[in-house]
Simulated assay, not measured.
Amino acid sequence: MGFFQNKKQSMDYYCSKINNQISIDEAEVTARKFNNLDELKKIYFNLSIAYGKSKDYELSLHCIQKSLNIFSSIENTSYYVYAKSCEANCYVSLKQLDKAISIYKNLLKDIHIDKTTAYLYNNLACIYIEKGDYKNAETYNNKSYALRESSDKNSLSQTMKTKAYIYETKEMYDEAISILNNIISCDTGYDCSVKIDSYKMLISLYQKIKRYDLEKITMRDLKQYIISCRNFSSRISYYKIFINFVANNLKNILTLSNQK
Rank of each mutant, 00 (worst) to 15 (best):
I103W: 00
I103A: 03
K105P: 00
K105F: 01
K105S: 12
N106H: 09
N106T: 13
L107V: 04
L107F: 00
K109C: 01
D110C: 03
D110R: 15
I111T: 09
I111F: 01
I113Y: 08
I113S: 07
D114K: 14
D114N: 14
D114M: 05
T116K: 13
T116G: 00
T117K: 12
T117Q: 11
T117D: 04
A118T: 02
A118R: 04
Y119Q: 14
Y119I: 12
L120W: 00
Y121C: 13
N122Y: 01
N122C: 11
N122E: 07
N123I: 02
N123A: 01
N123F: 01
L124I: 09
L124E: 02
A125N: 08
A125I: 07
A125T: 11
C126S: 14
C126H: 10
I127G: 04
I127C: 06
Y128G: 05
Y128F: 13
Y128D: 04
I129H: 02
E130D: 11
E130T: 07
K131N: 10
G132C: 09
G132W: 15
G132P: 06
K135W: 14
N136P: 10
A137W: 02
E138C: 10
T139S: 14
T139A: 12
Y140N: 12
Y140M: 09
N141A: 11
N142F: 01
K143Y: 10
K143N: 13
S144R: 09
S144H: 03
S144K: 08
S144D: 04
A146Q: 13
L147Q: 07
L147C: 12
L147A: 08
R148M: 14
R148K: 15
R148L: 04
S150F: 06
S150N: 15
S151L: 05
S151R: 13
S151F: 06
K153R: 13
K153V: 11
K153I: 12
S155P: 09
L156Y: 02
L156E: 02
S157D: 11
S157T: 14
Q158H: 15
T159A: 13
M160Q: 13
K161T: 06
K161G: 08
T162K: 08
K163N: 12
K163L: 14
A164L: 01
A164F: 04
Y165W: 03
Y167P: 01
Y167W: 12
Y167L: 01
E168W: 05
E168H: 10
E168A: 04
K170A: 00
K170R: 15
E171L: 10
M172A: 00
M172C: 00
Y173G: 01
D174Q: 11
D174Y: 07
I177Y: 04
I177D: 01
I177K: 06
S178C: 05
I179V: 13
L180V: 03
L180I: 04
N181E: 15
N181W: 10
N181G: 08
I183N: 04
I183G: 03
I183E: 02
S185Q: 12
S185G: 02
C186K: 15
C186L: 10
D187E: 14
G189Y: 15
G189H: 14
Y190I: 15
Y190E: 05
D191K: 11
D191M: 02
D191G: 00
S193E: 11
S193M: 07
S193P: 05
